[in-house]
Write a protein that binds this DNA or RNA. Structure first.
Lengths: 120, 120
DNA sequence: CTCAATGGTACCTTTTTCGACACTATATAC
DNA sequence: GTATATAGTGTCGAAAAAGGTACCATTGAG
């Protein structure tokens, strides 16, 4: 699924639909955005506990979302470390889309028994 | 394979957001759906000429969309072959999402120079 | 002293996806 | 008989995404 392959213009996506899907299509990005929409601000491990994902993958996806300008990363100079993630304004502009994906999935995939209830 | 148990569901890879993204997130699926939304019905090579994709990939993505119940494949017993693709009712229910992805991409990715204008 | 908590990195392997290229069958047009 | 159009299929390999495990620094609690 998700793929970030527009690192330079030669590989730029050919259409806006594809381009948007590349930004939110990584394995965990949609879910991360969904949780940030629901909660507003979450720390690294709070996010991690909400989804069954390795640290490595979560870091990865968060970095890519940050690079895409969809989320904000705020580091506090504390020990133990404290890092808070939240949506940027551009990230918040995706809210209708993410919520629509959620509703469509609830209506169309849950019905087939493919998705665990309440995991989002 | 028996019925999926609750324990399995808790580890199921999909929440509804992720599940929906998996259905439309292949490299070409979003674009295919977009064109079928715009045109209603398209033959294999009509689709192919609209996007720079190999035969093999297009066949692949169309088959997966068909398996997901999003598009319909109608074969005519003619020579040369004629196959028409169109959205199923479930596929049409994705129209608001696809169009929202398109609009968001137009507003947010084109602005950064990542997407070639007018390719969709 | 040892242990736990936080937010990561580094290294490596497995799995999935994408694409290039060659090949097919059939009927019609030239 | 050769070329053309259609809608595919088969094989191979590169590249990307995803996942597993181990490791790090700091500090406060016990």
């Amino acid at each position: 699924m998700g793929r970030i392959r527009h690192q330079d213009l030669r590989n730029s996506p050919a259409c806006p639909v594809e381009g948007t899907l590349e930004l939110i299509g990584g394995k965990w990005k949609g879910v991360i955005l969904y949780h940030l929409i629901q909660q507003g601000t979450l720390r690294f491990n709070e996010l991690r506990r909400k989804m069954n994902v390795t640290q490595r993958m979560l870091t990865n996806q968060l970095r890519e979302l940050e690079t895409s300008g969809l989320i904000d990363r705020k580091v506090y100079a504390e020990v133990p470390p404290k890092v808070e993630y939240s949506l940027t304004e551009r990230g918040r502009s995706l809210e209708p889309i993410i919520l629509a994906l959620k509703r469509w999935g609830d209506d169309n995939i849950l019905a087939t028994g493919y998705v665990a209830p309440g995991t989002c």
